[in-house]
Design a protein around this nucleic acid. Structure first.
Length: 261
DNA sequence: ATGGCGTACACCGTACGA
C-alpha cells in the first residue's frame, strides 16, 4: 500500500500536475494541502474519472486539505474535534487496505507560524497541542494510523540545507521541534527516518533565489505512522520530479510504501 | 539588511507562504 502527501500550493493551478503525477504514481492515497479553493470548486469529477475518490475541506484563498483514495473514504472527519478554527487544515478518513484492513489517514496542513514570537507562531504551537490531544485519542481507535502532511517543521538540522542560517528561526525553532517530538512520543514514527536516506533530502525549496537548483531546501513534509503501521513500512522517499516541471509547487510529494500483512 | 517568487483577491497593490 502506498500513501503519499503533497502540498500543491493551489489545486486550481496544480490539477494537471496532480493528474500527471497520479498517472505515473498510482498510489492508494494522496493527501493534498493548500488547495486554496472553496468546497464547491473542488474538482472531484475529474479526479473520479482518474480513478480516485476524494474527501476535502476547502477554503477560499488559503489552506484547504484533501484525501484522494482508490477506495471510498469512510468516517470522514473535518478539523480537529473540539478545536474552533476557521482555517481548514485537517481532514481524516478511514480507507480499506489491499488486505481489507482499515487504515486511518489524516491529511494535515500545520500552520506556518510566520515568525518566531508572532501571533501566528503562538497559534501554530497551540494548534500542535490540539492536534496532539486529538491524536492521543485517535491512536487508540485506529492502530493503523498515518498522519501525512506539511508539518511546517524541519525536525533536525539534517533536514535543513543551511542549519546555521536557519538556527532558531521559524520552522526550526526549539518549541516547534518539541511540538513535533511530542507527536512522535504518542507512538508515531517518522517513516522517512526508518531508512538510510540520501543526505540533504528535502521536500520544500524556496521559489526565490533558485532554491531548487541549489538544493537549498527543508524537509518539512512528513509521513508519520503508528508503531504497528510503521513496522510494515518498506520505503519512504521524496519525489523531486514534479518540482522540476513547469510552474511547480514549491513542495515535492513524499511517498511511503507499506507491506500488507 | 532586504528581497528575491508564486498565488489569490482584486487593486493596479497587499497578504501570505516557508
Amino acid at each position: 500500500m502506498k500513501l503519499a502527501t503533497w502540498n500543491v500550493n493551489s489545486l486550481n493551478v496544480r490539477l494537471g500536475h496532480v493528474l500527471d503525477w497520479l498517472q505515473a504514481n498510482p498510489v492508494d492515497a494522496l493527501c493534498l494541502q493548500e488547495l486554496k479553493l472553496p468546497d464547491d470548486k473542488f474538482p472531484h469529477e475529474v479526479l473520479r474519472a482518474a480513478g480516485y475518490h476524494a474527501c476535502w475541506a476547502g477554503q477560499k484563498t488559503y489552506n484547504g486539505v484533501a484525501i484522494l483514495s482508490k477506495t471510498p473514504p469512510l468516517d470522514i472527519q473535518r478539523n480537529i474535534p473540539g478545536y474552533e478554527d476557521e482555517q481548514q487544515r485537517i481532514i481524516a478518513a478511514t480507507l480499506t487496505g489491499p488486505d481489507g484492513k482499515p487504515v486511518r489517514v489524516v491529511s494535515a496542513y500545520c500552520p506556518n507560524g510566520q515568525a518566531v514570537g508572532s501571533d501566528k507562531y503562538a497559534y501554530k504551537l497551540d494548534w500542535f497541542q490540539a492536534l496532539r490531544g486529538w491524536l492521543d485519542e485517535e491512536i487508540v481507535r485506529h492502530p493503523d494510523l498515518a498522519i501525512l502532511g506539511d508539518y511546517n517543521v524541519a525536525p533536525a538540522d539534517e533536514d535543513v540545507h543551511d542549519p546555521e542560517a536557519w538556527a532558531g528561526g521559524i520552522l526550526v525553532s526549539d518549541p516547534e521541534r518539541q511540538a513535533f517530538r511530542d507527536l512522535l512520543e504518542l507512538g508515531f514514527r517518522d517513516t522517512f527516518r526508518l531508512f538510510d536516506q540520501p543526505p540533504r533530502t528535502f521536500s520544500w525549496w524556496d521559489y526565490r533565489r533558485l532554491g531548487f537548483r541549489r538544493n537549498a531546501g527543508l524537509r518539512i513534509d512528513h509521513i508519520l505512522a503508528t508503531q504497528d503501521l510503521a513496522a510494515r513500512c518498506r520505503e519512504c522517499t521524496v519525489d523531486k520530479t514534479p518540482r522540476g516541471w513547469e510552474k511547480p509547487s514549491d513542495h515535492a510529494p513524499v511517498v511511503a510504501t507499506f507491506h500488507t500483512a
